[in-house]
Amino acid sequence: MPLNLKVVVLAACIAVAPLSVAHAGSLSTQKTTVGDLFANPQAKAIVEKQFPGISSDLRMVMAKGKTFRELNAMNPKGIPADKLDAIDAELAKLP
């Protein structure tokens, strides 16, 4: 790969990285996508505590671009708001 192309690829990666990975202090079920929560090991563990096995549920692949609050709006019984509130409380404690 020519040097100029390497620089362009590196610059693109640096520019996009902050868009896809939220900082731990700003994670929430309202603003952070399912995919981004599962990409963060601490956040994934918090979600798994409320919804055991959810990160390996094949339906989550289709939902990775949505937030848990959006999923709650579509299925309040399957994704109860009280569990999302508990997740948010734990996410807020992350450094």
Rank of each mutant, 00 (worst) to 15 (best):
A39Y: 05
A39M: 12
F68W: 12
N40K: 00
L19R: 00
A73Q: 11
P80C: 02
E90V: 00
L84D: 03
T29C: 11
D36Q: 06
V61S: 07
A15S: 07
K83W: 06
N4R: 05
R69Y: 12
A15M: 03
L71K: 07
M1H: 08
K64L: 12
V61H: 12
G35A: 00
I14N: 02
P52V: 08
L94V: 13
D57Y: 12
P52W: 02
L94T: 01
P95T: 13
F68N: 15
I46Y: 01
I87F: 01
I46S: 00
V7N: 12
K83L: 05
N4F: 07
T67D: 08
F68V: 01
S26I: 07
L94W: 15
D36Y: 02
F51W: 10
I54Y: 11
L91A: 04
T33K: 03
A89E: 02
L3V: 14
E90L: 00
L19A: 10
A12T: 09
S56Q: 12
D57L: 12
A39C: 11
L37W: 01
D85C: 14
Q50W: 01
N75D: 01
I14E: 13
V9A: 14
A12C: 15
P80F: 02
V8G: 14
T29H: 06
P2N: 09
L58A: 10
V7W: 03
A63E: 09
T29L: 08
A22T: 15
L5T: 15
A11Q: 13
G35P: 09
L91F: 01
N4I: 10
K64N: 13
A89S: 01
K31A: 14
L71Y: 10
I14C: 15
V61N: 04
L91H: 02
N4H: 07
L19E: 05
T67K: 01
I54F: 02
V16E: 11
P52S: 05
T29R: 04
V61F: 14
L3I: 09
G25Y: 00
P52C: 02
L3T: 10
E70W: 06
